[in-house]
Simulated assay, not measured.
Amino acid sequence: MFDQREKIALLIDGANLHAASKALGFEIDFCKLLSAFRRRASLPRCNH
């Protein structure tokens, strides 16, 4: 999916994503989501 040498920007509107997931009846594990992206590319900085 990504080259490990690539640096990517992952911007998530947490409030809207949380509201949408609640409306659709499921929860998102943000730690697992972050881990999935960290396995696939270099994330030089992460604010959470």
Rank of each mutant, 00 (worst) to 15 (best):
45 R>V: 14
24 L>I: 04
22 K>M: 10
14 G>P: 00
13 D>I: 09
39 R>N: 14
19 A>I: 10
43 L>S: 06
20 A>M: 07
6 E>M: 10
17 L>E: 10
40 R>Y: 04
18 H>D: 10
27 E>A: 12
25 G>E: 05
35 S>Q: 14
30 F>H: 10
32 K>A: 15
39 R>A: 14
48 H>K: 10
10 L>T: 04
11 L>F: 08
48 H>I: 13
25 G>Q: 06
7 K>R: 09
10 L>A: 08
8 I>Q: 01
24 L>E: 13
46 C>A: 13
12 I>T: 08
12 I>W: 01
48 H>Q: 09
33 L>M: 13
41 A>V: 07
2 F>E: 01
36 A>S: 14
8 I>C: 05
32 K>T: 13
47 N>S: 06
29 D>H: 14
43 L>R: 03
40 R>V: 07
38 R>W: 00
10 L>I: 14
37 F>I: 07
6 E>C: 07
4 Q>A: 10
38 R>A: 08
37 F>C: 06
19 A>R: 14
7 K>H: 05
4 Q>S: 09
48 H>S: 12
9 A>H: 02
37 F>M: 12
14 G>H: 08
3 D>N: 11
24 L>G: 11
13 D>Q: 08
28 I>E: 07
23 A>N: 14
9 A>M: 07
39 R>T: 12
14 G>Y: 04
14 G>V: 07
9 A>I: 10
31 C>Q: 15
30 F>A: 06
11 L>R: 02
28 I>N: 06
46 C>M: 05
20 A>F: 06
33 L>S: 07
35 S>M: 13
27 E>D: 12
2 F>P: 01
14 G>N: 01
7 K>I: 05
48 H>P: 13
5 R>P: 00
17 L>D: 01
22 K>A: 11
27 E>W: 01
36 A>P: 00
3 D>G: 01
47 N>A: 09
4 Q>I: 10
2 F>Q: 01
18 H>W: 09
35 S>Y: 09
3 D>L: 05
13 D>Y: 11
7 K>A: 04
26 F>S: 04
28 I>C: 09
6 E>G: 08
22 K>S: 07
36 A>H: 12
33 L>I: 15
12 I>Y: 00
8 I>P: 04
16 N>G: 00
22 K>I: 05
20 A>P: 00
38 R>S: 05
29 D>T: 10
5 R>Y: 00
14 G>R: 11
47 N>Q: 03
32 K>L: 14
48 H>D: 11
31 C>F: 13
43 L>F: 01
21 S>L: 02
11 L>I: 15
41 A>E: 02
29 D>Y: 05
4 Q>L: 08
30 F>T: 09
28 I>A: 08
